[in-house]
Simulated assay, not measured.
Amino acid sequence: MKINRRHLMLGAAAGAATLAMPAVVGAQQARIIRYTHYQPGRLDQPKHAAALAFKSTVEGLTAGRIRVDIFPAGQIGPAQQVMEQLRLGSLEMAVVHDGGIAGVYAPYQAFSLPFLWENQAIAWKVLDGAFGAEMAEDMRKKVNIRLFAHADNGIRHITNSKRPIVTPDDMRGLKIRVQPSPVFVKLMETLGASASAIDWGELPAALSQGTVDGQENGVTNILAASLYQSQKHITLDGHVYSLHAYMMSDRFFNRLGKEEQAAVLQGVEVAKVIHRGMTAAQDANAEVILKEKGMTVQRLTSAQIDAFRQRAQGPVREWLDKEIGREWTEKLQNATRRAQEAA
């Protein structure tokens, strides 16, 4: 079923790309949305397929009054810089990963609590529900960034070039790259590894040169940067359900007319569905995909995963409570429990 959904989403994305065209009416007067993301500019990449769908939807609904210019692969700059530009209103729109968001809006780190969600269905109930809306409004008020929606950055797994990992003790002595977010440093340290915060653009070189032994990412990002070329082993532990957020400068959004705002919101909804579907399909087929790339895959049992959870979740929760306060972690875990009970 998930493979069929993947085909559906790829087809939708390809159709969106085919329909995308520059505005022909009043092109010189068109309002421009510069839209940046961090995956390669290819249709097999969820972020870019979704970006093309957003462009097609918004330009079509506004009859060219808005033009969307897409800058893939981090062309505008690193995540922290992009977040600052959104906050100041000097950039219109971006889709940024969780670690980059946390540098400007610290409560977003709550989503990095390890082993929080069992599956995508639970995650989406929390993200699309009252908790997600409350955090989005808090973010808008505090940093002037409008958070429209969340999509998948992939379920994060641990890769390395040294040895198979099946227990937390196997992590000892490994140098693991994490995204520039303190909570990820804390997570890897609780598992016994040495953590190095390295920006996404520098990761392939850090792995190939042996600066670090391994890293942690979802299937989509492993494929996007061809990390399998320097990483022999992957452990499907699923320690964090990683996120991308669709965000816009609040100043820019408020300058749009009601019909233009509606077009943006509809474009985000279309993009979100495509983005989630493609990434979820890759996550569901992680073992097959990565074995085909030559990686040795360790699929853990529930008991083995629980050993990682017992080692990491408590210390990371304690750290998060000190860094961002108990309010957000408690609300997130309560929202998760409600979603689980309703499932």
Rank of each mutant, 00 (worst) to 15 (best):
L8K: 11
G15P: 02
A16H: 08
A17L: 12
M21G: 02
A27E: 03
A30E: 04
T36G: 04
H37R: 03
D44H: 04
Q45T: 04
A50H: 13
A50F: 11
F54H: 09
F54Y: 06
K55R: 14
K55D: 03
S56W: 03
T57Q: 12
T57D: 03
E59R: 04
A63I: 00
G64K: 11
I66G: 05
V68Q: 07
D69Y: 07
F71T: 07
F71H: 12
F71I: 02
Q80D: 13
R87N: 14
L88C: 03
G89S: 01
S90V: 01
L91H: 07
V96E: 12
H97V: 10
A102E: 14
S112A: 15
L113D: 04
W117T: 09
N119C: 09
N119K: 06
A123F: 12
A123I: 04
A123W: 12
W124T: 10
G129F: 08
F131A: 07
M139V: 12
M139L: 14
V143I: 15
V143E: 11
N144F: 10
N144Q: 10
L147T: 05
A149Q: 08
I158R: 00
K162R: 06
D170Q: 01
R172S: 02
R172W: 00
G173C: 00
L174G: 00
K175Q: 07
K175R: 15
R177F: 03
V178Q: 00
V178R: 00
V183C: 08
V185P: 00
V185E: 12
L187G: 05
M188Y: 02
A193S: 06
W200H: 07
G201E: 13
E202H: 09
P204V: 01
A206R: 05
S208N: 01
S208Q: 04
G210L: 00
Q215V: 05
E216Q: 14
T220L: 09
L223G: 05
K232P: 02
H233Y: 04
H239V: 06
H239A: 12
Y241S: 05
L243S: 08
Y246R: 11
S249F: 04
R251L: 11
F252T: 10
E260T: 08
E260F: 01
V264T: 12
Q266T: 14
E269S: 13
R276C: 09
M278G: 11
A280K: 06
A280C: 05
A281S: 15
L290Y: 01
K291V: 06
T296G: 06
Q298E: 15
L300I: 04
T301G: 11
A303D: 13
Q304I: 10
Q304S: 02
F308C: 01
Q310D: 01
V316A: 01
W319Y: 10
G325V: 04
R326M: 09
E327C: 10
E327A: 13
W328P: 08
T329N: 10
L332I: 07
L332T: 10
L332M: 14
L332G: 08
Q333G: 09
N334A: 15
A339L: 12
E341R: 15
